[in-house]
Computed example of a mutant assay.
Amino acid sequence: FQSPVRSIRLDIAELVEAAKKTQKSGATEFCIVAAVKSPDQRLLDQVAVAVQAIEREVDIDISCSLGTLTADQAQQLHEMGVKRYNHNLETARSFFPQVVTTHTWEERKNTLDLVRGVGMEVCSGGIIGMGESLEQRAEFAVQLAEISPCEVPMNFLDPRPGTPFANRPLVPMGDALRAVAAFRLAMPSTTLRFAGGRELSLGDDGTEKGLLSGINAIIAGNYLTTLGQEIEKDIDMLGRIDLPIKAL
């Protein structure tokens, strides 16, 4: 769809500086993300150089999100030293065809199975508020629990111009917090992480309530195709509600 998304080459020096800034904020993980359906060898080679450069200068766990993988690609990332791989299931299996027509839910799950098989940790979540029913949100929570992810990023729809969801309403704060509670009940020992759209659906007040009632991590900074808020603002919020950083 005609949505404004930039395409850029990985800049190794910029990634190293971003990793340093991330570490100084108190974060435990730095994620290299590329908005592609799946990586080609050129991109994987760039990622390998980036991982080596970051590891030389920054003491931080490195994760990646590069789309659908083959078994060989998953093995390459593991051998590079990538600890965790993010590949979202996005939504319930029954609702997925209403959102994505270029590939199947099963293809995404297959990538997660390959990731786990080579020894990387699995990070997988999705987007709440794309038109799914409450029953399908519950279905989604159960299906995520079945793949035993170590981490689940919870996104709330940020309607993008030029897409079929451009005019969908934002998820109300109450619905967002109820989704957090349901996912926590479904996955009591999984790290649930606030991700994209929280600034719109929850704001500062809702984010604080979520952190005190089920969420135990947040993505700081920017997201895949949209901007977040400044890391310093999140750190101030954590201090205000007396939640320690890195208490894992």
Score class of each variant (00 low, 15 high):
N86F: 14
P97M: 07
Q73V: 14
P159S: 09
R56S: 00
T111H: 04
N155V: 06
P159D: 09
R116Y: 03
A181M: 02
D158I: 11
D158P: 04
L69N: 07
M120D: 06
L134F: 15
E151D: 02
S133C: 10
E139L: 09
L170H: 07
A138R: 14
L69H: 07
S65K: 10
V82C: 05
H78E: 03
F140E: 03
T70E: 13
N155K: 03
I128F: 13
A176D: 02
T111E: 06
E135V: 02
S124V: 01
L66M: 09
A92F: 05
Y85K: 00
G126A: 02
V82W: 01
E135Y: 03
Q98M: 04
P153K: 14
S148E: 14
M120G: 03
R116V: 11
Q143E: 14
L89P: 07
T68K: 11
A181N: 03
F140Y: 07
N88L: 12
V115A: 10
G129D: 10
G125R: 12
A74F: 02
E57M: 00
A181W: 00
A166L: 03
A74V: 07
T104I: 12
R56M: 00
F183W: 09
F156C: 00
H87F: 01
P97R: 13
G162A: 10
L77P: 13
G126K: 08
L66Y: 08
G174N: 15
L134A: 15
P153A: 15
V118T: 01
N86S: 12
E106G: 07
R160G: 08
T70K: 13
V115K: 04
V152Y: 06
R137A: 08
F165M: 15
V99Y: 08
A74Q: 03
W105M: 11
I127D: 11
Q76R: 14
E151L: 08
R84M: 13
S65C: 11
P164H: 14
M120H: 04
M173L: 02
G67M: 09
T163N: 06
T163V: 07
G81T: 01
I60M: 02
A181D: 07
R93G: 04
R108Q: 14
V100F: 11
V171W: 05
P97C: 07
R137T: 02
T111A: 00
G125D: 05
L170K: 08
A179Q: 06
T111F: 03
R160H: 09
E90S: 10
E146Y: 01
P97Q: 08
F165D: 15
T104W: 10
F96I: 11
Q98G: 03
G125M: 06
I147Y: 04
G162W: 15
D72I: 12
P153W: 15
V122G: 10
A179F: 14
A145S: 13
L112V: 10
